[in-house]
Amino acid sequence: MGDPMTLLEPTDSAPVPHEADPAPSPNGLTDPEFELVMLHVDGELSDDSVRAAAAVALLEQSAVARAVAADWVSAKVALREAVLDPAHEVDLSRVRGRVMTKLPADVRSAAVDPQPAAGFGAWLRSLGLGKVTLAVGAAVAVAAWLVATAAGPGTGPGGAAPPAVAEVPGEAPAVIIEEIEIEGGSVVVDPGKGPGTSTIIWHFEAQGAG
């Protein structure tokens, strides 16, 4: 991926092919144009010379496109300086923490009582972890903990009948994980979607870790 600022320099390229007049988005570009600029800034068009040339031409012709691209570059720089660089300085060789108690109170309440229709991805986005999701998706899940928040019906191992859930006072969960100690990687909590459902805690091992 090249330097985004360099890629924004106007060059002699073919004009942008305009398709069937899509409505401009609030930022002044049509959705296809906006996507083209984003892909170009992200360096995602290196294998698509036609679209890359179109992106360069658009940037040359349109002050709005240049402004959008500059904003996007600024946002990427800010993200790198504020989040990614500090994150790389963190020693994850021995992660140790209290997963749930690290969540802010409002997030924790959402985790305890998520919207029924909210999926894992939506829940992650509600935590502002959309970027993390992408990174996690490229990693390798090495373990997961599934925590039953309520005892199921029937008999337990050895024929012993598990006590009724009502024996758990108030709304105390059946299991509280105080601390997870892992050898690097990331931990993501996928809360249960309601009473009797389970919470899954994923441990993702970083790429290349053994």
């Binding site: 903990w145 006590p163 024996e167 105390a172 601390e179």
Partner: peptide, 17 residues
């Protein structure tokens, strides 16, 4: 692969995968 410290109510259950 990991170490957990947890508390369980009677009937509570975890699955480690």
């Amino acid at each position: 692969r990991n170490v957990q410290t947890l508390t369980m109510a009677i009937g509570g259950r975890t699955l480690d995968i």
